[in-house]
């Protein structure tokens, strides 16, 4: 490493950061590919069928075949579409889903940018994703995608608030905006010290609004394939694939966030012998997989909400619940029982 450092001289920090970015993004994209595979397999078994099993052993090469197929396909640009915005939209969707990973810690040390306000950074970045969706619907100049964009804009904006309030509870409990500090604050004897228990209502609100945030069933009204086909109805080939990748990258992102914020990140289930032997990184992966499994399970089980019902749920249920619980936590912290919430 020192050899490279001397070779590149002043460029070394840039190159080293790029290497780290690749080290995060490459496994992430592979993860995205295999989340699609896992989704098809898991939902397949839930639906008494077996899912993909033709390409490669157990169908393991299926995501690669799908990716190749989409890359080979033509990107059709509708004649009435605004070409520049049409092509910009998938990028705008994908970029935030990847940028947010810059501040995600995998272990206390393993993090690309351990900044103090990492939670705020994530909030800011993930809010950008909706622009991609809105732009896709608008630039397509087509009626169904336009409806999808309208729905998505309204939905994401309102769930952002509920989600934000749920996170305020976490930062009140942890007294920090830094993700590493938040996880460290959850350290305790067992999983009962993680924040899902003291902040249980917020945990529920966060889990549900994160499903809404990433446009997954039962909140997939922006896509709503049986109603309006989706905001990306006019997209094909790689342009469509980028939306697809963004959706799954976002899924992994919110799963990671819920693991870090409420499920103790890399902390083991119990803080004693056999459990502490497993490295923290694998604990984190296991928790992410668990949350992802929940997302898939939701999709296999629930019917889809109607668009106005989603809004009602967001504004009339989640936001009041979070506000009340925030006040409650704030009040309790001033009493001798406050240690329960730290």
């Amino acid at each position: 490493m020192e050899f490279f450092q001397s070779l590149l001289g002043p460029f070394w920090p840039v190159v080293w950061t790029l290497v780290k970015i690749v080290a995060i993004v490459a496994p992430l994209l592979l993860g995205v590919a295999y989340v699609t595979y896992a989704e098809r397999k898991v939902i397949g078994y839930m639906q008494v069928r077996i899912g993909p099993n033709r390409v490669g052993p157990l169908g393991l090469l299926q995501p690669i075949a799908d990716g190749l197929k989409l890359m080979m396909k033509e990107i059709i640009i509708p004649s009435g579409a605004n070409k520049k915005l049409f092509l910009l939209a998938p990028v705008l969707c994908m970029a935030p889903a990847l940028i947010a990973w810059a501040v995600i810690p995998f272990t206390p040390e393993l993090v690309l940018a351990n900044i103090d306000a990492s939670l705020l950074f994530i909030m800011a970045i993930t809010s950008m994703g909706v622009y991609g969706v809105v732009l896709a619907g608008w630039a397509s100049n087509s009626k169904y995608p336009f409806l999808g964009a309208m729905r998505s804009a309204a939905q994401i904006v309102s769930y952002e608030i509920a989600m934000g309030f749920a996170l305020v509870g976490v930062l009140m409990a942890a007294q920090s905006l830094n993700l590493v500090e938040i996880v460290k604050a959850q350290q305790g004897a067992s999983f009962f010290s993680w924040y899902w228990l003291p902040l249980f209502p917020l945990f529920l609100v966060y889990m549900i609004s994160s499903v809404a945030e990433i446009n997954r069933a039962p909140f997939d009204v922006a896509e709503g394939e049986s109603e309006i086909v989706g905001f990306h109805a006019e997209y094909s080939g790689m342009a469509f694939a980028v939306f697809f990748l963004a959706e799954y990258a976002n899924m992994i992102l919110v799963a990671t966030l819920s693991s870090l914020l409420f499920l103790g990140g890399w902390l083991p289930l119990f803080d004693f012998a056999p459990f502490t032997w497993i490295p923290g990184f694998f604990w984190l992966i296991a928790k992410i997989c668990f949350v992802l499994f929940l997302f898939l399970w939701f999709r296999a089980t629930f019917p889809r909400y109607r668009y106005d019902q989603i809004m009602r749920l967001g504004w009339k249920v989640f936001i009041p619940v979070t506000l009340v619980w925030l006040l409650f936590i704030g009040g309790m912290m001033q009493t001798p029982l406050g240690y329960l919430f730290h």
């Binding site: 639906q47 997939d220 709503g224 049986s226 999709r299 629930f302 019917p303 889809r304």
Partner: peptide, 16 residues
């Protein structure tokens, strides 16, 4: 009907 309303698992159960 369930598939239209978004519950896709029903479809495959019914077909079984």
């Amino acid at each position: 009907h369930a598939l239209d309303v978004g519950a896709m698992t029903m479809f495959l159960y019914a077909f079984r």
